[in-house]
Nucleic acid binder design. Structure first.
Lengths: 208, 208
DNA sequence: TTTTATTGCTGAACAGTGTTCAGTAATTTT
DNA sequence: AAAATTACTGAACACTGTTCAGCAATAAAA
């Protein structure tokens, strides 16, 4: 059945074409400004065709959301080479924010926007759990080295996540008082250092 | 000219009527689901009438946004009675989050949603500066008491803000792994305590 | 080979959105 | 009484996501 096989591949190809066009358009124009008609023009099919491959607009965005989380995990994983857990924690924070600056549309989809929250709610387990685990492991290593109490691993992980997400979402949603980009970067890096140092300084071994 | 005066008052009254209807509708149905036509039905005028009082939908939402920030400031001010700056910091965090839980639609408008970000960008100074100042003052008091370095006031303020906003926006946008509400509350309160304690514990006077 | 069935795709249509503006009816001024 | 101003309407415009009858092109059956 070579023909049937080819047809399945053709179907997958057009689905991929839709997704690639969506990625490009959303990144360029912001997905609030991308309509199904614009998307259908880009792939040179009629609007109806998209619905033969995707249930609705949300399911396209949700697939993007899933891809985004894979890239996110990779970005965070780059911190793993650093063996010193405190340094790694700071590096993770740095990489987290860098991902957000480089992929604001992705970040919006992953952590902020409503348009995929129905799909997210339907999932049995949260797709970001792996990435969250990476952070928890680092915090856990910090506890192992005596920087924080072992009882505090969960709240500390959550705190760290909330902290970096808070920064990322405030910046992306333009809720930061209008200061120069350079000042902002310093404030952000300074805050990250402050938070990590506050943990660091508690360890008697590191007090000088 | 009593008639002209009355007319101005009438105009203001209908503007107020629109605003009050908007508040009610947005709170009940979420402002994503409130159209100008629905709003016009509620106030028993035609859709066009709204545009005689408000330039567009965004300007209604922006006025709501302004009201929200006033209520927000009041909510944070309730912490001021607490004299111990560390306790006050924790209380402020608590009040911040309580405001978010009680007014999720407001919170969205203030800190998250795009639909008023153009209006925000046009403002010369950020409307939340007063509230931010309240937080900075508390952090400053913490520095005065030796809990943190005076150099760290700015990054510490920003960190604290990012932290609570991170929690609020993750919860409101339903990006927290599906755990029981009670567990979540414990995690949040635990994280707040953890962060504040991490500052607290650094002060030699408070080490026991 | 001719007929029937299946498939992939279209694009008009539906119900909704924010917004505009010619036209109307009531009121006020001349 | 006539003219001018005002307050308001609701149809219309250009858009949105989504559906579905219908139409070619291809494949299967007769």
């Amino acid at each position: 059945m070579g023909i049937a096989e080819r047809k399945i591949k053709d179907k997958e190809k057009i689905k991929e074409k839709i997704l690639q066009a969506a990625i490009k358009l959303f990144a360029k124009e912001g997905y609030e400004n991308v309509s199904m008609r614009k998307l259908s023009e880009k792939i040179q099919y009629s609007p109806g065709t998209i619905y033969l491959h995707y249930k609705d607009k949300e399911s396209i965005l949700f697939e993007l959301h899933t891809i985004a989380f894979q890239k996110f995990y990779e970005a965070l994983s780059e911190s793993s080479s650093e063996k010193n857990p405190i340094k790694r924690l700071e590096l993770m924070g740095h990489n987290y924010l860098e991902f957000a600056w480089k992929n604001p549309e992705y970040y919006d989809l992953m952590f902020i926007n409503n348009c995929v929250s129905d799909s997210i709610a339907k999932e049995a387990e949260w797709i970001g759990m792996d990435s969250y685990g990476l952070l928890r492991q680092t915090i856990s290593d910090c506890a192992e080295h005596g920087y924080i109490a072992k009882n505090d691993i969960e709240p500390a992980t959550f705190s760290m996540w909330a902290f970096v997400h808070g920064i990322a979402s405030l910046v992306i949603k333009k809720r930061i008082p209008p200061i120069k980009r350079e000042e902002l970067n310093q404030l952000i890096e300074g805050s990250l250092k402050f938070l990590v140092n506050t943990l660091n300084i508690k360890n008697p071994k590191h007090k000088k």
